[in-house]
Structures are given as structure tokens and as C-alpha cells.
């Protein structure tokens, strides 16, 4: 295993939006294959901007990103987009086709798969998220939790190596959140989970990274990161009232 490349390797990533607002400031971090990492940080810290870089939706301005050892550049953008599955914060932005079936098939079709292969991918991905019954529904008639699961299926259908989820539990009811957490636990993929839901981070991700003002300000085992209340407060994070990470069995690494 000694020569296995990092699943994701970000080095000195710097990015400003066209209006001059600097979002990422020489950010560096790596994720090992199979690792599940929580990306924490206040609003506006640059978490989503980082995520949009990971599969090349935003163009690199400075720094470098490698996915499984492949650098992100113009030439291998389509390969990167297959390898990195991005689940957006708002499922309505992600589900844009008239039916769930076509939406899940959209990625595989772009990969140039045959129609039989597309159908197989659709079935398999919807099975994985327990949403096969929705296959002929239109996405906007699904509930929030159902949309989120289908959004994950659209990405799973591309057989990614890395799953990047932007606030996967925001706006879900407690039961929808539970279903989603169980689903993410069941997926054996490298995962990068952007979230404000600290108990979710503790449950799913052995490791947490805090990003603030475009830089990594903390990186360590989730129980330790969450136990440091001063660190959390300094970056506008807070555990839910009465929640104690120390009292909870730690996730298996």
C-alpha cells in the first residue's frame, strides 16, 4: 500500500471571486483513500468554494489539486468529474431532469455508456439509496429527504471514488437526517462531508478539518476537535445544547 496516492491532495489553493473577494488562502489538505473527513467552519469560510474546486466546477487560479494522483487540469476534467461525485447543498439545483430516471442516467450518459449500462447504473444507484420506487416520479414532487437521497444516487451512478457532500443534512427532519446518516455510513467510499451538524461529523467521520477564512485552522480526530470548546467558539461553531462528544462511543477509524 506504500505507493497508493492520496485520494485528494490540495496544495496551496488560493481563490478569489471576480469581485475581488478572496475566499481561499493557500489552503492545503489531504484525504487518504477510504477516509471519511468532516469539513467544518463558519459560513463564508470557503468550504463550498473548496468543494466546487474538487471536481473542477471552479477553475484553478493558484495552487494544485490531485485526485488519486491525477492533477486537475483541462485535459482530464471529465475523468476528475467521474471520480469526484459532488452532492450539492440544494437538491433542487442538482435534480434538473424531468424524471428521476433521466436525472440518474444523466451522468452515465455523459460518460458515454450504452443504454443498457445506463439502465443498470440507474437501478443500482437508486437501490443503494433505497429510492428505486421514485424512478418514474418527477424530482420536484419528492420530499426533501427523498430529493437528497436521489441527488446522492445521481452521483453514485457515475461510480465515483470520492464523494463530496455539501451540508447533506440541512433542512431535513430528524428522521430524514437519520436515514441520510445511515446511508452515508453504508457507502464504502472516500467521503468529504461539509457540515454544521457536529453530531453528524462525530458519527460519520473519524477525522475533522476546520476551515476558517480560507485556511485550515484545525485538523485532527473528530472527538478531539469537538472537545476543544475554545477552538470551536473561535470559529463560530458550537455543539448542540447538552451534547457531549466524550460521552459517545467513538466511530471506528
Amino acid at each position: 500500500m506504500h505507493s497508493t496516492p492520496e485520494s485528494v491532495a490540495v496544495e496551496d489553493l488560493t481563490f478569489s471571486y471576480p469581485n475581488g473577494h478572496a475566499v481561499l488562502d493557500q489552503l492545503s489538505m489531504t484525504v487518504k483513500p477510504g477516509e471519511k473527513v468532516a469539513l467544518l467552519g463558519p459560513n463564508g469560510a470557503g468550504k463550498t468554494t473548496l468543494a466546487l474546486h474538487l471536481n473542477g466546477v471552479l477553475e484553478l487560479q493558484a495552487g494544485s489539486i490531485k485526485v488519486n494522483g491525477i492533477p486537475i487540469n483541462e485535459d482530464n476534467l471529465s475523468e476528475i468529474r467521474r471520480r469526484v461525485g459532488m452532492v450539492f447543498q440544494n437538491a433542487d439545483d442538482q435534480l434538473f431532469m424531468p424524471t428521476v430516471r433521466e436525472d440518474v442516467a444523466f451522468g452515465p450518459a455523459n460518460l458515454g455508456l450504452t443504454k443498457e449500462q445506463q439502465a443498470e447504473r440507474v437501478r443500482e444507484a437508486l437501490d443503494a439509496v433505497d429510492a428505486i420506487d421514485f424512478v418514474d416520479r418527477t424530482p420536484h414532487h419528492l420530499s426533501g429527504g427523498e430529493k437528497r437521497r436521489v441527488a446522492i444516487a445521481t452521483v453514485l451512478a457515475m461510480h465515483p471514488d470520492v464523494l463530496v457532500l455539501d451540508e447533506p443534512t440541512s433542512g431535513l427532519d430528524p428522521f430524514g437526517r437519520r436515514e441520510l446518516a445511515n446511508l452515508l455510513k453504508s457507502l464504502d467510499l472516500t467521503q468529504l462531508v461539509i457540515t454544521h451538524d457536529l453530531p453528524l461529523a462525530l458519527e460519520l467521520c473519524p477525522r475533522s478539518v476546520i476551515i476558517s477564512n480560507g485556511r485550515v485552522v484545525a485538523d485532527g480526530p473528530t472527538p478531539e476537535v469537538l472537545a476543544d470548546s475554545q477552538l470551536l467558539a473561535a470559529h463560530r461553531l458550537e455543539l448542540p445544547y447538552g451534547f457531549s462528544p466524550a460521552a459517545i462511543a467513538q466511530p471506528e477509524p
Binding site: 466546477v57 468529474r81 459532488m86 439545483d93 433521466e102 444523466f106 450518459a109 460518460l111
Partner: peptide, 23 residues
């Protein structure tokens, strides 16, 4: 703005500018 986000989501799943043929 939603259009921009949707376009981003399409790019993320390998959209190349033409809608793919489906079954």
C-alpha cells in the same frame, strides 16, 4: 443564480454542452 448553480451541477456530472442521448 439558480441557473448558474444548475449549470454547475450539470458540469459536475460530466455535461459537455449537449444533452446526452438516453434510453
Amino acid at each position: 443564480e439558480r441557473g448558474e448553480r444548475v449549470h454547475g451541477a450539470m458540469l459536475a456530472r460530466g455535461f459537455t454542452g449537449t444533452m446526452p442521448q438516453m434510453d
